[in-house]
């Protein structure tokens, strides 16, 4: 039943597949992000209230979505690694952390830049902003924990547990705007039914979102390969792969 996991979980197999997939994701990401940025900045109409200021949504929302998406991926990979003792899954989790941290930072920073003219402040301690900041520290904590433990296997297990426990923060971030009074407004596109956004604006947001996803895939595959190289020291398959490329 789990043969497909085991096949994908074999480092040489994964290394070859990801090396082949990376350029595809990279080009798709480049095309989609350029198109999304152009569309968001110049094609989409300005908002009736926020005028051109609303265009920040095209970088803020994809970064924020990705910050959560990457965390869930990281925690899932960590859980798979912990339960089935698959080294490659731990490598994926470890590769997720720096990418996730960078997008969390981006979500916070672009949000702050957007908040200044619209809300009238750079930062408030409301539930949404605070829980997103906690996410950034979870990523930092995860990376610090890995760096602090020399033994690979022990670092994998300890950090995996931290990643899994931290996943509690994900629903808190997502639903903070509904559970509590916050300054941050509720979600525009993630709720069921019709998004509260004009179609001409929404298209470019979806394009940008797809572009960011492809970007994450490309960076993740590259980082996992680097991780696999380190962990497969002294194994036979490395010789063919490394010298062949």
């Amino acid at each position: 039943m789990w043969t497909w996991i085991h096949k994908l979980g074999s480092p040489p197999h994964f290394y070859r597949i990801s090396a082949r997939l990376t350029p595809w994701f990279s080009w798709a990401a480049l095309l989609l992000i350029v198109a999304g940025a152009y569309g968001g900045l110049y094609v989409a109409p300005a908002d009736y209230q926020q005028l051109d200021g609303f265009r920040i949504i095209y970088v803020h929302v994809p970064s924020a979505s990705l910050s959560l998406f990457i965390y869930v991926n990281m925690a899932l990979a960590a859980a798979v690694g912990l339960i089935w003792r698959i080294k490659l899954a731990h490598a994926v989790a470890a590769a997720c952390a720096p990418i996730g941290a960078s997008f969390t930072f981006l979500a916070l920073a672009t949000g702050s830049i957007w908040a200044k003219p619209m809300w009238g402040t750079w930062w408030v301690w409301d539930a949404r902003l605070t829980s997103e900041l906690v996410l950034l520290f979870l990523y930092f904590g995860y990376m610090a924990l890995r760096a602090a433990i020399d033994d690979d296997t022990r670092a994998d297990r300890a950090s995996a547990l931290l990643a899994i426990i931290g996943v509690i923060n994900v629903p808190i971030i997502k639903y903070s705007v509904e559970w509590w009074n916050t300054l941050h407004q509720p979600a525009t596109i993630s709720k069921m039914g019709k998004p509260s956004m004009d179609f001409d604006m929404l298209v470019w947001l979806l394009v940008m979102l797809a572009g960011f996803m492809c970007f994450f895939a490309a960076i993740l595959l590259t980082r996992v390969r680097a991780e696999v190289l380190l962990r497969s020291r002294g194994q036979k398959w490395l010789r063919n792969t490394v010298e062949g490329s």
């Binding site: 900045l41 300005a46 005028l51 051109d52 200021g53 265009r55 920040i56 672009t110 830049i113 003219p117």
Partner: peptide, 13 residues
């Protein structure tokens, strides 16, 4: 040029 929000839009992008 993004009107009065130019600095914020250009800055975040």
């Amino acid at each position: 040029d993004f009107g009065k929000h130019t600095a914020y839009v250009v800055g975040s992008f």
